[in-house]
Design a protein around this nucleic acid. Structure first.
Lengths: 131, 131
DNA sequence: CGATTTATTTACGTTAACGTCAACTTCCCC
DNA sequence: GGGGAAGTTGACGTTAACGTAAATAAATCG
C-alpha cells in the first residue's frame, strides 16, 4: 500500500522530457528523487513538482523563479514566520502575473485591430481573407 | 520638414537600451538605420520598430519570432499573396497569445486559492496576514 | 553466461541575447 | 591642434537550459 515509485524512464515517458532534463532539475534542486543504490526513484511528490515546473516554464518563468515558487508549496510546519514571508512573496508573484496578463490583453486588442485593418485592405483588393 | 534622425546615443537614452543592443538588433535584421559615413542614423520607423521589439520581449517572444512579427507591419505593396499569408500568420500568433493568456488566468486563480488557504492557516495560528 | 536494455557520472558543445574590452576614426571645442 | 566625447568594428566572455557523447555499472532476458 506504500506510494509508488517511478523510474527515470517512466517519468520521461509520462511528461515527455529527457533524462537529462530530470537530472538537470535535480542538480538545480527542483526535484529530490530518492536513491536506491545509484538509481533515482521518483515519488508522487516529484511528479507533482514536475508538473508545476513544466507549467511554470510555459509561462516564461526561469527555473530559478520556479524553484522559489515551488518553495511556496513546501510549507515548513514548524516555522510560521517563514509561512507569512512566503505569503507576501506569493502576492508579489500574483501581481506580476496579473500585470503580465493585462499587457497581453492589450497586445491582443492591438493585434485584432491590425487584423481588421488587414482584412479591409484585402477586401479592397478583392481577395478573400483566409478564415 | 523632412523626418528627424536620431543618433545611437539618443536612441539608447530614449529607450533605455545599450548601443550594443541596437547594433545587435541591426545585425539580426530587426532594425535598418541609415548610414552617413560609418555612423548610424535611426529614423522614425526604427523607433516604431524598436518599441514593438521591446514590447514583444516583455511577452517572452524571441528576437527571431519578433522579426517575423515585424514583417507583418512592413507590407509588400506589390504582392498581395504575401499579404494574405502574413494575415494567417498573424491569426496563428493571436490564437497562441490568447491561449497563453487563458493559461495565465487559470494559474492566477489557482494561486489566489492557495493564498486564501494560506490566510486561513495564518489566521488559525493568530498571525496577521501581511496585506 | 553473454547480450541488451536502462541507467549513471563526467564533461564538453550549443543557442540566445547581449556584456565587455580593445583598438581605431570622427567630430567638436577652446 | 590636441583632447575629450561619441561612434565604429571585431572578437571573446557569459548565463540559461539543456543536448550529446563517452565510459561504466547494474539489471534483465533468452
Amino acid at each position: 500500500m506504500s506510494d509508488p515509485r517511478f523510474t527515470i524512464g517512466e517519468m520521461c515517458e509520462a511528461f515527455s522530457v529527457t533524462p537529462r532534463t530530470l537530472r538537470f532539475y535535480e542538480a538545480k534542486e527542483l526535484l529530490y528523487p530518492e536513491r536506491i543504490g545509484q538509481k533515482r526513484l521518483f515519488t508522487k511528490s516529484d511528479r507533482a513538482r514536475l508538473k508545476l515546473i513544466l507549467q511554470g516554464k510555459r509561462f516564461g518563468f526561469s527555473l530559478e523563479e520556479i524553484r522559489q515558487l515551488l518553495n511556496l508549496y513546501s510549507i515548513d510546519d514548524q516555522q510560521t514566520t517563514q509561512l507569512s514571508r512566503t505569503y507576501t512573496l506569493a502576492q508579489e508573484r500574483l501581481a506580476a502575473m496579473e500585470s503580465q496578463r493585462d499587457e497581453l490583453t492589450n497586445a491582443i486588442e492591438d493585434l485584432k485591430e491590425q487584423l481588421r485593418w488587414g482584412e479591409k485592405i484585402l477586401a479592397e483588393r478583392g481577395v478573400k481573407a483566409v478564415a
